[in-house]
Design a protein around this nucleic acid. Structure first.
Length: 569
RNA sequence: CGGGACGUAGCGCAGCCUGGUUAGCGUACCUGACUGGGGGUCAGGGGGUCGGAGGUUCAAAUCCUCUCGUCCCGACCA
């Protein structure tokens, strides 16, 4: 393409409303423009990059026998009512009505639609498994969209769904999918980790997330520096405590006055004890009412782990209202002794002796508390969020590291959640009817491109990984009105295109400076700079965007070397 | 949903507190000339319902009320 004919509105300055680097650079490089909060237009240069990501995804999906489909973005409410998600999905689901007043939603995901298709067409185990995918625009009415295309409301997503006769076959596809995802993100030039994850509102039993490591990421990833275990921090397992030997004599339960000492820090300071000798009692609320969670004072409770332990639908910090309704709860002085609520305790609590808790009366705490003697624990479990340097639960001596990550892909084994609700069944060899077992697998296309920028940029702009670059080569004449320069540029440009290399020719009448700035900004991996002085001695300059290294090569011989130079980038 | 900030030319901003010529700066844009190896120089030029509505006032970008939009922090969330 000739630069003068391409719509690439680059900007010198960053837009005022952009915060993260990928957002700033995508706007500056003329890839995207905002239309409304979380809604973006994709401009030619941006689309070229998204298409690259899509193509890589298609190739890897087809490789594992995925078949591409294209499903409607507007979906009737009935399907969502059937899966129970019309209510459950909440405000994030954009609901719309047609002229007859019939209810629809703009699809945030497509489990319902795909399950509806498959249940209508598939009858026999002989037709299974089946793996379908699409690349399509989704809409989720996020509370707070942010970071440009990284967390938009409308966004491009690859979603795949698989249907199986049994769990084992599902797992087979799941691991193939995990491998395909690995290939995709590798080909996109990303530094990522496959981590264990919670399955959230999608439901299901088993799930991994593909996280691109970057400081701007919204997820926290815990991974072991020794055995390679990696998990979203919301799920990362902690090592159970080694059994502790109790002191020879256990303290008696004793009430102490602690007026105004509500936080762990206050009490630790007041009683001159380490925070680990204090037990926090956290009040939470689920569909069945209030529950209490116990963690050590130096730990943080993890509501996702606790929700999974209890096996409830949802779990969140108890509201003031719910607390007020329950007599005997005093904020800052709540404790498990004699507490008339289901109490769940973190494993670490079992190793404690002589600890401190709230006394369930204003301005008082209890010391000398013992688990066995004083507490009624409904269930012990892993309830705390791990921290950097905590021991790894899966190996000896390994320690957790914690880094931030961008979730670019997520794979789930759904089980029969949707197939049961929507009666997607097949007949097995015995002629018996069974619910199909499902998996679902998503990749944020735009988010992947944005993540690539987060990991590949410098102070001059984007440094595209070769496979995502909108063009591989940009030919930059110092002065395109110089006839010999023009002739050389045109020759290089034509020949590279014959070689199948996507090439951009900067035929604009600007001086060299702005052209170089733009080339750096939009991140084309290889720049060929053609000027009269070098050309007079039969040379052109080859410059690598990433390293900023340049050297002079003989013209026109260099043209035939370009494919090899590109291979090494 | 709670807290905070902002809205003035395509983009980035000043002016507002303390109301008063024709609303300004940088950049981008148009014309011409020069220039030609990292956003060049000179000259001339076009572009604004000061987010919107209402109010106060002789007079509102500026003060007041409402409203819409956008961003940030938190909660929430693939």
């Amino acid at each position: 393409m000739q630069f003068s004919k391409l719509f690439i509105p680059t900007l010198k300055e960053s837009p005022a409303d952009a915060e993260v680097i990928s957002h700033k650079l995508m706007v500056r490089a003329g890839m995207i423009r905002q239309l409304a909060s979380g809604i973006y237009s994709i401009l030619p240069l941006g689309l070229r990059v998204l298409r690259k990501v899509e193509q890589i995804i298609r190739e890897e999906m087809n490789q594992i026998d995925g078949q591409e489909v294209f499903l409607p973005s507007i979906q009737p409410a009935e399907l969502w009512i059937e899966s129970k998600r019309w209510d459950f999905y909440g405000k994030e689901l954009l609901r719309i009505k047609d002229r007859h007043g019939r209810e629809f939603c703009y699809g945030p995901t497509h489990e319902e639609v795909i399950t509806d298709i498959v249940r209508k067409e598939v009858r026999s185990y002989r037709q299974l498994p089946i793996l379908l995918y699409q690349i399509q625009t989704k809409f989720r009415d996020e509370v707070r969209p942010r970071f440009g295309i990284m967390r938009g409301r409308e966004f491009m997503m690859k979603d795949a769904y698989s249907f199986h006769a049994d769990e084992k076959d599902t797992q087979h596809t799941y691991s193939q999918m995990a491998e395909a995802y690995g290939n995709i993100f590798k080909r996109c030039g990303l530094d990522f980790k496959q981590v264990q994850a919670d399955s959230g509102t999608i439901g299901g039993s088993f799930s991994h997330e593909f996280a691109v490591l970057a400081d701007s990421g919204e997820d926290e990833i815990g991974f072991c520096d020794s055995c390679g275990y990696a998990s979203n921090l919301e799920l990362a397992g902690s090592k159970p405590p080694s059994p502790s030997t109790p002191p020879a004599t256990l303290q008696e339960l004793k009430e102490v006055e602690t007026p105004g000492k509500k936080s762990v820090e206050d009490i630790a300071g007041f009683l001159n004890l380490p925070a680990r000798q204090i037990v926090k009692t956290i009040l939470l609320e689920n569909e069945n009412g209030l529950v209490a969670g116990l963690v050590r004072g130096d730990h943080e409770i993890n509501t996702i782990k606790m929700r999974n332990l209890i096996g409830c639908e949802w779990l969140q910090a108890a509201g003031e209202e719910a607390i007020a309704k329950h007599p005997g709860l005093h904020c800052g002085y709540v404790g498990p002794v004699g507490l008339d609520l289901p109490v769940y305790a973190d494993n670490e609590i079992s190793a404690l002796h002589d600890f401190v808790t709230g006394a369930n009366k204003p301005s008082a705490h209890l010391t000398g508390v013992q688990v066995k003697r004083d507490l009624k624990i409904k269930q012990f479990g892993d309830l705390r969020t791990v921290k950097a340097n905590d021991p790894c639960p899966h190996c000896e001596g390994g320690r957790y590291q914690v880094k931030r990550g961008i979730e670019v892909g997520h794979i789930f084994i759904l089980g029969t959640k949707y197939s049961s609700a929507m009666k997607a069944v097949y007949l097995d060899q015995q002629g018996k009817e069974n619910a199909m077992v499902m998996g679902c697998y998503g990749i944020g296309v735009g988010r992947t491109a944005a993540a690539a920028i987060e990991q590949n940029h410098d102070d001059r702009g984007i440094v595209w990984p070769r496979n995502l670059a909108p063009f591989q080569v940009i030919v930059i004449p110092v002065n395109y009105s110089d006839e010999e320069s023009k002739a050389a540029c045109d020759t290089i440009y034509d020949r590279l295109r014959e070689l199948g290399i996507e090439t951009l020719l900067d035929d604009r009448s600007d001086r060299l400076g702005p052209k170089l700035k733009d080339a750096d900004l939009i991140g084309i991996p290889l720049q060929i700079i053609v000027g009269p002085k070098n050309l007079a001695v039969g040379q052109v300059e080859i410059k690598i965007r990433k390293t900023n290294e340049s050297d002079l090569r003989p013209y026109p011989r260099v043209i035939e070397d370009i494919p090899n130079i590109l291979k090494d980038l």
